[in-house]
Design a protein around this nucleic acid. Sequence first.
RNA 1: GGAGACUUCGCCUAGUCUGGUCUAUGGCGCCGCACUGCUAAUGCGGUUGGGGUCUUAAAGCCCCUCCCGGGUUCGAAUCCCGGAGUCUCCGCCA
Length: 419
Amino acid sequence: MIDLRLLREDPDTVRASQRARGESESVVDDLLRADEDRRAAVQRFETLRAEQKQLGKQMPRASGDEKTALLQRTKELSAEVKAAEAAAGEAEQRLRRAQMAIPNVVEQGAPAGGEDDYVVLREVGAKPAIDNPRDHLELGEALRAIDMERGAKVSGSRFYFLTGVGALLQLGLFQLALAQAVEYGFTPAITPALVKPESMEGTGFLGAHASEVYRLEADDLFLVGTSEVPLAAYHSDEILQLDSPMRYAGWSSCFRREAGSYGKDTRGIIRVHQFDKVEMFSYCRPEEAHAEHLRLLAWEEEMLAKVEVPYRVIDVAAGDLGSSAARKYDCEAWVPSQGRYREVTSTSNCTTFQGRRLNVRYRDENGKPQTAATLNGTLATTRWLVPILENHQQPDGSVRVPKALQPYVGGRDVLEPRR
RNA sequence: GGAGACUUCGCCUAGUCUGGUCUAUGGCGCCGCACUGCUAAUGCGGUUGGGGUCUUAAAGCCCCUCCCGGGUUCGAAUCCCGGAGUCUCCGCCA
C-alpha cells in the first residue's frame, strides 16, 4: 500500500515508478480520483453528523412544541446521516481497492525493465574447473543424501526426502545461519507455517502471487511460502520502539504450489513444493531502510563465503520486483552442472509498503506514530545444498565439506559415496 | 466437540442492570513544571489512536474510535442479534 501523501504531493514519482515496472500509469489517476471522492464523502457525512449530535444534546432539555420540532428534524437527519455514512464507507472501500492495485514505488537507481534487465553488481569466488560435472541429484543419490523417488512415491512430484548426510548438511547449514544471525543481534524465531488470510494479504502475497499459495479451505488458512509472512505480521497493529532496527531470523518450512512452472527444473531439489529456510527480517525507520538493505545483503554474502561457493550479486530490474519491494538484490550461486548462476538468496527493501498494510508503526522524535519500514533477506535454504554439493565434488563422486559445515557432519571433511 | 465467564484510551480499573449530563472514572507508568543540597516524597498540569479542515508550520475546529460487524432508537460503552479472541470447567486425543 503506497503512501497517499506522496501520491497527492508527487504523483509523477509514482507514475515514473509504474513506467519503470512496465505497468499501467492510469491506475495512478484512478487512485487520485478515489482519494478525492473519499474525502468529499467523508466531509458530507461529518457535517451531517455534527448537526445530529448538536441537536441530540438539546433533546433532554426540550419539551412541548420545541421537542416535537426537534424530534421531527432529528428523524430526518437520522436517515440522512445513515445514507451519508454508507456512502463514505463505500468510497473508503473503493479507495482501498485502488490503493491495493498499485505496487510499491521503485527505489531510485533500480534498473528499469523486466526479468532479463538485471544488472550484475559483482562476481565473487573462482568457478571450479570440473570436467563433466555430476549434478546435485546424482551426487546426492550416491551419498544417500537426497531421495526424490520416494518423495514422489509418498507425496508426488517436486517432493523429496533428505536422509543421512543430506539431513545433517541441511540442519548444519541452518544452525550456521542462525548462529551468524544471533551474532549480529537477530532474535531467532521459529514461526507458524499456517497463517490467516489477513497476514497473507498484508505481506502482499495474495495479489499477483495468489496462485502460488497453498490454501486450506476447510480452515481458511494459508501455508506460508516464506517466514517473511509470519514475521511481518508478528508486529502488526503495534507501535514499536525503533531507535535501532528490530531484527528477526525466522526458521520455517516454506510451501509453494509452483503453478505454471511445469517442465522447469524438474530434476532434483532446485524447485520443490516444500523446503526449509532461515530468513532475516528487519523492522526499521524509513530513513534507515536503504542502509539496512545493504547490511542484509552483506550478511547473505558472509554466509555464502562460509559455504565456499562462487556467486554473483544482481540488482533486480523494476519489472521483476514483486509488488511489495522497492529494490531487490539476489545472490546467485554457480551451479557447475548447468554452467550458470542460480538464485540462492533474495533481499528486498519493502520500505513502508508492508508496514502500512499491516499497521506497523514506531514513534518519531516528536512522539508521533509513523509507519515502519520492513526488509527481508535469505540466509540459507534447502536449495543451497545444490551449489554446495556440486562445487565441492571430486572426480570420484565424493564431496568436500566446507570447513564451517564440518562440525555438523561428524567432523568429516569429505563425504564418500555409499558403494 | 459441549457449557460458562470475560474483552473499556500503554497496563490495571469504574461505568453496562436503570440509553442522553460518558466530551469515559480512578490508580500505575510516562512527560513537563514547582518544591528540594542530591535522590526520594509531595503538589500542579499533561498523556488512546485514526481521519478531515485550516496552515509555511503549530494551535484551533469537526468526525470516528469503549474487541469486530449488524440491528433497535431522535440518541448506544450501555439494549438486541451475529462473529472473533482470552480464560475456566467437561469430553476426546497426541
